[in-house]
Amino acid sequence: MATQPSILAFLERLQQVTTFDGLQSLVESLRALYQVDNFIYHSINSAGEPYAALTYDLDWVDHYLDQDFGRIDPVVLGCYQRFHPVDWKMLDWSGKAVRAFMLEAHDAGIGNQGFSIPIRGPNGQFALFTANHRCSDGEWQKFTAAHVQDLILIAHYLNQKALEIERGTDRLPYKNLSPRELDALTLIGSGQNRAHAAEKLAISEHTLRVYLESARFKLGAANTMHAVALAMSHGRIIV
């Protein structure tokens, strides 16, 4: 499975997405980027309407909905109303109905490993992003250890994009960068190291890291340098 940072490639594609069809293609493209069998993004908006972009076999999706497997699916039950990331190993797969469901899922090509990230959106919107794969525990452990923060970020960036498409706007209120975040990006962008940048801003290095992390997330960036580049290209900072 992938060991290179693939989130940058994902984010470049994400920027081009303006429709739900585009979002579906993007989720499909994650498979090659991370060399993982399946990715699933699904959400329930504030009006209770479901939406999904996923790579599972569509016959399985129909069967799942038809059987109303959401009632017993440990992933759904273990993630709904939660906000911590969940390795499928953490879930309770015991019980007769769940075991039967698992066997059917396996036959439909669903992998034995999974990692799911629940997302709480605005006004009761709820979404779930899952990476699913067939491999040994050891391999999966290696993959998640290397990519868990990527998966958490991708989950949230996908959800923001889905909300933007739904509303027909790309202006989410929390995208507002404060002057201090812009100062932090400017200093780092001009080649200052963190210690110097923090000193100039009269803040601790931890505080600087939090400003940079916050700015990174609001800009939809892969890392600090990507955030600097995006802020520059949006004309938010001049370095």
Binding site: I152, H156, R180, E181, Y211, K218
Partner: peptide, 11 residues
């Protein structure tokens, strides 16, 4: 917080 709206799934 220096006027920063701290926002990240990692915080």
């Amino acid at each position: 917080t220096g006027g920063v709206q701290i926002t990240s799934p990692l915080i």
